[in-house]
Design a protein around this nucleic acid. Structure first.
Length: 812
RNA sequence: GCGAGAGUGGCGGAAUGGCAGACGCGCAAGGCUCAGGACCUUGUGGAGGCAACUUCGUGGGGGUUCAAGUCCCCCCUCUCGCACCA
């Protein structure tokens, strides 16, 4: 055994040993308990991995290795989210082609993960841009289509003029593109493919209750889905028979207070009802509203604007004709794109009414009789007033009464509305999974490509830049576009849009169970064995994108009886963000990126791994500090010389003191518990504390258990030095195939404890007593203490509070 | 604006309502060295004291309790999410 700890020699050595032994290959072994740990698969970037990325991969690797040592068959795979905007945008930026950059960047990621000591089963590596993979993404799209969950529609949708494609609602963040956070999106009309995720809204909402996810993520999904109960009602347009304004409201009880109506500027009814006198003003307003980006529209939130259409609706409850306005605070995409305005009970309607001098009836009073303030709407529930047959009813009762009345009179019915929209899945981009659809020029219309003709291959294309016209670059490849109709054999054209990259990531976690299956997306038995994912780890930024889509696809697969579970990720954790030392996000342009390569070169992978674990709680943000790596390296140097002393002494089976055995077991208990809870920083602190103790011992005061349990505990965190020390201790087999040390709770138990004596709430004395000592015994000891006597100052104790093994509190 | 999370030494961070600051970084002193970003020992929240010790101290202000970083109320700051959702 070398005198010096030298990661530069042991790390490459063990890396090649592991590869030679194929140590990390995972086999399906039915009957053995399994553990599937998965990180959200990354898109391979040319910037490579930073030490920030490892803050996710290293802890998951530790968990995988630890679980393996505790008897689980562990699946810990890695793959590449290679199709889609991030990969393609980066290739464009570098003037390269994604088909060339993706494999190159992926190989670099793989290299970095490998030297970092991560134990992936690379025989299961997948790449979502490979035909063997995207063939099945296409297969899933056809399944959705078959089940009525994919449809084509024209609509006004978010457009990023830098990505030159339409985006889904989930991919618009603060009014900007998710890939270009400074670029406001605008609206564009295109015919697009949608996935009916709204059909699954209720199940996506309900099943959140049964999964172990961070609460903020669940909340974001709940808010995103945005379930609202209410009623859809209709008022006829006055003097325009057959026309009506349909609207959604959560407060049907306020119908008697409806003094005007508002349509979204894009509402189709606007053109039909606007009077000639108002037409010019209405069209000008609608044009302006369309022109504005989401950001501009948001910046005018304070001031509501609108224009009168000149038309009136008939409020069937008050029997009054009320004016119909248009305003951009009413959104075409929500409900029916029209509202009844009850300014007395809705603050937005109130502000609008004040601005334009519209009537503000008051139809709800506070339940306790208090008068509502006159300068704003009364938005709370209460009791109906000035409301005909509703007078005196509570809000809840009045809602029911109006719904009943509406249903009987054919005016409308109770309904539920969601904020979530269907998932727009078409992208006018090259680097994505081709949509397996053909448009027949004769009579067949939209025709799915038959399954046995999959995959529809993405054609090689040198000049793949998006055009910005709203058509995919694939439209410029005649050999791709022109085809024959699979149904009638006549001339046909292929769909030229590609699928959103999030389609690929909506099922990849299943592919890892049987990555080479070529007759189906996955082997049923393998999926039944491995899935669902036992621990899923990734950033919080995917809360309402990937995590929502993947849950929906899983439920569809369940409904199609392809799988037997409804939630893909029963346990999810979000790793914290590692900020650069300057407090900013690590980025190449800021020049503050720290790479694992540099840290490994300087301190070794094991020291880097330890610092990733030790720098703070796994799920909290922290700042990078390189001197911490020097600290964990120092720790490993101390471990090295401690074990070396024992080995040089011939690994004696010495006679450890009771204290030493007790501490070894206590540490084992803490480390085990903290690894289970993913509290790596505190688990490691316990190990450091233990090292501070054992380094003071002579070899003869130790035995194999004391030394080997330490090495075994360390091994999942620092696989290289773990392996080297294990070998030095005389073992031939890999430490990573060993069993976790056996914990004896009896030996971990404390025999003496410190009981603190407080007088009037202040700590005055510490007493060493046998664990479990009773109140009388401790009280007697305390009263003998000089310090206690001094602080009592002769006053008689009035009260004692005794907490066993902890404290005695005296009130004097 | 609404919702969620957070605020503890010079720094990262520990603390089932029960000794605040574990563990580590940094710093200081000493040792060992030809030398060292090596290693070993000791110290390290503020104020007071040679010292044992005393006292103050977990963003600010109140409260509950024998006991509050932890629970309750009000306020401030930061981060994230949603952003007129009828």
């Amino acid at each position: 055994m070398n005198e010096r700890y030298d990661p530069k020699t042991i790390e490459p050595f063990w890396q090649s040993e592991w590869e030679r032994a194929d140590l990390y290959r995972t086999a399906d072994t039915p009957g053995q308990p399994k553990f599937y740990v998965l990180e959200m698969f990354p898109y391979p970037s040319g910037n490579g991995l930073s030490v920030g990325h490892l803050h996710n991969y290293v802890p998951c690797d530790v968990i995988g290795r630890y679980k393996r040592m505790t008897g689980f068959n562990v699946l810990h795979p890695m793959g590449w989210d290679a199709f889609g905007l991030p990969a393609e945008n980066e290739a464009m930026l570098r003037g390269a082609h994604p088909s060339e950059t993706v494999p190159r960047y992926a190989a670099n990621f793989k290299r970095q993960l490998t030297i970092s000591g991560c134990a992936y089963d690379w025989s299961r590596e997948i790449n979502s841009s490979s035909p063997e993979y995207y063939r099945w993404t296409q297969w899933f799209f056809l399944m959705l289509l078959k089940r009525g969950l994919a449809y084509r529609a024209t609509g006004s949708q978010w457009w990023c003029d830098k990505c030159r494609t339409i985006l889904a609602n989930e991919q618009v963040i603060n009014g900007c593109c998710w890939r270009h956070p400074d670029n406001p999106v605008t609206k564009k009309d295109l015919e697009q493919w949608y996935i009916k995720i709204t059909d699954y809204a209720d199940r996506l909402l309900e099943d959140l209750g049964g999964i172990d996810w961070p609460e903020p993520i669940k909340l974001m999904q709940r808010n995103w889905i945005g379930r609202s109960e209410g009623a859809e009602l209709a008022f006829p347009v006055a003097g325009n028979p057959g026309k009506e304004v349909r609207f959604f409201t959560t407060r049907p009880d306020t119908v008697f207070g409806v003094s005007f109506m508002v349509l979204a500027p894009e509402h189709p009814l606007v053109a039909q009802i606007t009077t000639d006198a108002q037409r010019a003003a209405v069209e000008e307003y609608a044009t302006e509203a369309r022109r504005q980006s989401e950001i501009e529209r948001m910046s005018t939130v304070k001031e509501k604007t609108g224009v009168f259409t000149g038309a009136f609706a008939h409020n069937v409850f008050t029997k009054k004709d009320i004016p119909i306005w248009i305003a951009d605070y009413v959104l075409m995409g929500y409900g029916t794109g029209a509202i009844m305005a009850a300014p007395g009970e809705d603050q937005r309607d109130f502000e609008f009414a004040v601005k334009y001098g519209l009537e503000i009836p008051r139809v709800t009073a506070a339940a306790d009789g208090a008068t509502a303030p006159a300068d704003r709407a009364f938005t709370e529930h209460g009791v109906a007033i000035n409301s005909g047959f509703l007078d005196g009813k509570t809000t809840a009762d009045a809602i029911r009464a109006v719904c009943d009345f509406a249903e009987r009179g054919g005016i409308g019915n109770p309904t539920v509305t969601y904020r979530m929209r269907d998932w727009l899945i078409s992208r006018q981009r090259y680097w994505g999974c081709p949509i397996p659809i053909v448009y027949c020029k004769a009579e067949c219309g939209i025709v799915p490509v038959p399954e046995d003709q999959l995959p529809v291959l993405l054609p090689a294309m040198k000049d793949y830049q998006p055009s910005g016209t709203g058509r995919s670059p694939l439209a410029n490849v005649p050999s791709f576009v022109n085809t024959t109709c699979p149904r009638c054999g006549g001339p046909a054209e292929r769909e030229t849009d590609t699928l959103d990259g999030f389609a690929c990531s909506s099922w990849y976690f299943l592919r890892f169970a049987s990555p080479h299956e070529d007759r189906a997306p996955f082997d049923r038995a393998a999926v039944d064995y491995w899935l669902p994912v036992d621990l899923y780890v990734g950033g919080a930024e995917h809360a309402v994108m990937h995590l929502l889509y993947a849950r929906m696809w899983t439920k569809v697969m369940f409904d199609a009886e392809l799988i037997s579970f409804q939630e893909p990720f029963p346990k999810l954790r979000n790793q914290g963000v590692v900020w650069a030392a300057d407090g900013q996000r690590m980025s190449k342009s800021k020049g503050n990126v720290v790479t694992p390569d540099a840290m490994i070169e300087k301190y070794g992978a094991d020291a880097l791994r330890l610092w990733e674990l030790f720098m703070g709680p796994f799920d909290e943000d922290t700042k990078w500090n390189e001197s911490g790596v020097a600290g964990t390296e120092r720790f490993l140097i101390r471990v090295w010389s401690w074990v070396r002393r024992y080995v040089e002494a011939g690994c004696p089976q010495g006679v450890p003191s009771d204290e030493t055995i007790h501490r070894a077991h206590k540490t084992l208990g803490i480390v085990t518990e903290h690894l289970e809870q993913m509290r790596f920083n505190t688990g490691l602190a316990a190990l450091m504390e233990h090292l501070n103790y054992v380094t003071k011992l002579e070899p003869g005061q130790m035995n194999r258990f004391v030394v080997e349990s330490f090495v075994l505990m360390l091994a999942p965190m620092t696989p290289y030095i773990g392996e080297e020390l294990w070998r030095a201790l005389g073992h031939q087999d890999s430490v990573h195939r060993e069993r976790w040390p056996l914990f004896d709770p009896a030996l971990a138990r404390e025999e003496t404890v410190t009981v603190v004596v407080q007088i009037n709430g202040k700590m005055r004395e510490r007493l060493q007593v046998a664990a479990g000592a009773g109140e009388d015994e401790v009280k007697a000891l305390a009263l003998q203490s000089e310090a206690v006597a001094k602080h009592l100052g002769g006053k008689p104790p009035r009260k004692f509070i005794f907490i066993k093994d902890k404290m005695l509190s005296i009130v004097a």
